[in-house]
Design a protein around this nucleic acid. Structure first.
Lengths: 247, 247
DNA sequence: AAGTGGTCTAGACCACTTC
DNA sequence: AAGTGGTCTAGACCACTTC
């Protein structure tokens, strides 16, 4: 782990255990350099990471201050009703399985699993050659038996060759990473609120027209190649998405 | 504008006008240093910005590659139905007014405007002293006459003192920035899909139980002090949120 | 072995806030 | 005037990919 991450982690701990309270000013950049025995650029990178994660805010000429913690927000939300899906911190948004591996037991209902020529508009988003084939699957993911989300996914055949039903039941991303050696790098997402169709309602154990949190997503490898197009529809009452936004 | 932003902008232009196509490799970091006459750290910062914005992906030992452009995604979405609200690129998510100032005419219906002792749970999120007062307002924002979102907002009285009805009709953020000299720095958000109540449906010109895209948000100043708590409910069929997520 | 991106040093200079 | 964060230089060393 690089130095700047260690420093960020150390300061983050001080905030989380209360040694640094909301409104407090952090030591100055120069003081932190002395304290950790590193150069300014390393401290700056640590502070930038803390800012991205929502822990601090820097004010030129004045100092760096502790914000009300995102964790406090997090805990409060569950009271709001959304008790199932936590997404959003950048490092956590890497698949349903990984998000929920500590939450309970994940299972899947598989409704479709086939190899097809994808619709032109999807092929284009996946940067596929005309006539190329792709895996297509539709799953409902359950947490401790409760249906959370329906995922409709396309993956180019040549990137994901060897994909089997058993991977759909656990984690496609684990298969891509561990068995195919791919490095998943980033996701472009569009989120919307939509109404459940009759079929979706049945699969997700809700009522038709109940609100769904839709995520249309393209996943990219570290060489910029798209490996996945998916539309997931999350049960509104069991889903919330967290986000920190810097201006 | 700092050098690294100029360089990022320059490379971004090359991508947008097609000089660099998806899948292409950028010049190496060292080549870019020579090309722009800057040091390595400056080029790295430019490339990091491009990665955050979803334009490129870097692969250690190999190179930096152009991804399928987010703009291509953007244009495709409007075909999908969501033709009104574009959010998400970090630098654009700073208020309804600013997001739509080029889209059409923004107007407001004001349903509530008062100074109150906020509910305990909201006062806590705003880090307010017990017994403190806050502005509270409920507005519906329209774009060219079409209702898009209902916003329910609390702001501490001492931070926003002088707020008037006229500011609710244009932009509260402009008032805070220009007249109060505040620097809005970041927002913590939680997003959900919910169903419209009867009252909301009436105000937004939709049907009860139609899906709404809810954003619960706390806004922070550059010294880490929260200045705003708001819950906005956006008409699902007129809203989409864009996002780039790095792992 | 050669080439690539990622981290880091030890400074310098500047913009801005605070007094 | 003094103190703060933000940017930048000219290198160095390393992890990883490619051949």
């Amino acid at each position: 782990m690089p130095k700047y991450e260690q420093i960020a982690q150390d300061i983050r701990k001080s905030i989380e255990d209360g040694a640094l309270a909301p409104g407090d000013r952090l030591p100055t950049v120069v003081e932190l350099c002395d304290l950790y025995g590193v150069s300014k650029i390393t401290v700056r990178k640590a502070v930038e990471q803390l800012a991205e994660q929502g822990f601090v805010s820097s004010r030129r000429g004045s100092g760096t201050y502790v914000k009300a913690s995102p964790e406090a927000q997090g805990s409060e939300n569950s009271a709001h009703g959304g008790d199932a899906l936590y997404m959003g911190r950048k490092d956590r948004s890497i698949g349903f399985m990984r998000e929920h591996q500590n939450d309970g037991t994940v299972t899947s209902d598989i409704y479709e699993f086939e190899v097809v020529e994808p619709p032109a508009e999807i092929a284009q988003r996946l940067d596929m050659e005309p006539g190329g084939f792709a895996y297509h699957d539709v799953r409902v993911r359950r947490l401790d038996g409760v249906p959370i989300v329906q995922e409709d996914t396309y993956m180019p055949l040549d990137l994901a060759s060897g994909l089997k039903r058993q991977h759909l039941e656990t984690s496609i991303y684990d298969f891509l990473r561990n068995e195919k050696g791919l490095k998943l790098s980033s996701f472009h997402r569009i989120m919307r609120a939509v109404a459940a169709s009759k079929v979706e309602a049945e699969r997700l154990d809700i009522k038709p027209n109940d609100p769904l949190f839709e995520i249309e997503q393209i996943g990219f490898l570290d060489d910029g190649v798209p490996f996945e197009y998916s539309v997931s529809r999350n049960v509104g009452s069991r889903t919330e998405m967290h986000d920190v936004n810097l201006t």
